Simulated scan of single mutants.
Amino acid sequence: MPTTTDVTLKGPQPVTKGLLPSPVPVRFVTEAGTAADAPSGYTAPSDERLREAHRRMIMARRFDQQATALTAQGRLAVYPSSRGQEACQIAGILALQPQDWLFPTYRDTAAVLARGVDPIDVLTLLRGDWHCGYDPMETRVAPLCTPLATQLLHAVGMADALQRKGEDGVVMAFVGDGGTSEGDFHEALNFAAVFGAPVVFLIQNNQYAISVPLAEQTAAPALAYKGVGYGVRSEQVDGNDLVAVLSVLDKAVEQARSGRGPFLVEAHTYRLDGHTNADDPGRYRDEAEVERWAAADPVQRLQAWLHGRGSLTEQDIDAAHAEAEALAADLRSRIALESSPDVLELFEHVYAEPTPQLKEQRRSLEAELKGAEA
């Protein structure tokens, strides 16, 4: 009969240092565009990649401005601006390879655009035309997700499937700070950790869940610490410093791709505009706060950094803005072409084989439409 001293008890393992995020957000570039103290364990991306990031951020900012204007004109039903969060979204795309997948939220139009999706198709959901205007299998971009955090479970499922099939693919899943309070967030982290799924969770902590400030959402010292409890390697980064975000995401993607499991990154950023065009942010935050964050604008910050290093010329900047204006003009012209929606499309793609009830509903609507035409 063995004694308790003879039995090896298997229980929770001690927290390893490798799981914990940095005590302060990783950053390479100050708000003024100068060099910060070099963070240990990370390498700055090449200037070539950073120039491409700058170009895409200029495009993303102009797209956002144009989409906001189209909403005011009634061309879009709603638009959640991502102005101020471009560093997170563009770095997320640049860290991926063509075979990888992106699972965005409703606010991640800049990322979907940077992934190569047609601008008109990016806005299809927000026009109220279809749930998704592009082919997810072709673009490897999941539909823009309106419900909070539900896309994280889908992302982990896709990552697990890629791993089981032996494919060299990584999944990047975006979520906002408000989404981390949803049960789906915690379920996704737990599943990903247990099964070692190759997924990177990127929290864009823009300080507000609509109007609820971060301090009223969580008592955690940082959202990055939420990964530790599930055994997920975690990190926090200055989300307005594209150099830092891309460096951290490169490392996170490399870990996931090499079979070492999921990675959670919290990017500290800020939503400069309202939650959507229907929001009045002045009711829950003051202008002084917005001005402080505007001074840390990610586009100007990267531009100043590259310009100061002699890696970005005025001609490069002008060319990027010209390309962005061409994008905006093309978007305006094509979105003005009104389409005549077929209301019977309501019944398409509900089931692979329509049910008797669905067929009856379609017949009923067809009869009503014919009566209206008579």
Rank of each mutant, 00 (worst) to 15 (best):
D160T: 14
W130R: 15
F195C: 07
T124K: 12
A159K: 06
Q207E: 11
L148R: 06
L125T: 08
Q207G: 04
P143R: 00
A197R: 05
A161T: 09
A142W: 07
V199T: 07
Q207H: 12
G166C: 03
L214C: 03
A215W: 13
A161P: 01
F174C: 03
P147L: 04
G133S: 07
G183W: 08
V194E: 08
N190H: 12
A224M: 08
L148G: 04
I120W: 07
A209W: 07
T146N: 08
D160Q: 15
P143F: 00
A215Y: 14
T146P: 01
Y225H: 14
T139K: 12
M172H: 02
V170T: 08
G178N: 02
N190Q: 11
F185R: 06
L123W: 03
W130T: 13
P119R: 09
L126I: 07
Y134I: 07
F185M: 10
N205L: 10
G157D: 11
F191P: 00
P213W: 06
L152S: 00
R164E: 10
G183A: 06
E187Q: 15
A197C: 15
A173K: 01
Y225P: 05
H186A: 02
P143C: 00
G157Y: 06
S211N: 13
H186E: 03
W130I: 05
A193E: 00
V194G: 09
D121V: 11
P221F: 14
C132T: 14
A215N: 14
D160E: 14
T124E: 15
P147C: 06
R140S: 01
L144H: 01
V200P: 05
N206I: 12
M137T: 12
T150S: 06
T139G: 02
A149P: 04
A192I: 02
I210S: 04
I120V: 15
A159Q: 06
A142P: 07
G128N: 04
V117Y: 15
A142N: 07
Q207Y: 05
N205D: 11
T218Y: 05
R140I: 04
G179N: 06
R140G: 00
F174L: 09
G196W: 11
G157T: 09
F185A: 09
G157N: 08
P147I: 03
